[in-house]
């Protein structure tokens, strides 16, 4: 039950630290949206180059939970569907593979908005 926790902590923590350093040390005003978009794109690119899967194998959740892991899921879905269905798969694979995360997040967003009020 406890295996892989240290790897997950170290790699996950490091991935977050990169963003923190960019926010703190560069003059750009970096917003959460900028960070999240960069990580998804970076994850997809690394995954496309075959560099992200080894990281996932090593760190488990340390690589899949950061949003770069979301980019990895999109990319792997695209590649898998492409090998199965060809060109159509390039366009359908990404969303299909990431549908779980997106749908749950949207459902949570709606439900919370209905149930709660912002506290300020």
């Amino acid at each position: 039950m406890l295996n892989g926790l240290i790897q997950a902590f170290l790699v996950g923590g490091l991935i977050c630290v990169i963003a923190q350093l960019v926010i703190d040390l560069t003059p750009f005003s970096v917003t959460p949206a900028h960070v999240l978009v960069s990580y998804v794109v970076m994850g997809a690119v690394l995954s496309g180059l075959g560099l992200y899967q080894p990281l996932v194998d090593f760190a488990g959740a340390g690589a899949t939970i950061p949003l770069s892991g979301f980019g990895h899921t999109l990319m792997q879905g695209t590649i898998e569907a492409m090998t199965e269905k060809g060109l159509a798969g390039v366009f359908s694979g990404g969303l299909a593979a990431s549908a779980l995360g997106i749908t749950v997040a949207l459902m949570m967003g709606f439900t919370m908005a209905v149930l709660f009020n912002p506290k300020g």
């Binding site: 926010i23 917003t31 959460p32 912002p118 506290k119 300020g120």
Partner: peptide, 8 residues
């Protein structure tokens, strides 16, 4: 940002 967003 929205007030409930976790931003430093």
């Amino acid at each position: 940002f929205p007030t409930e967003m976790g931003v430093q």
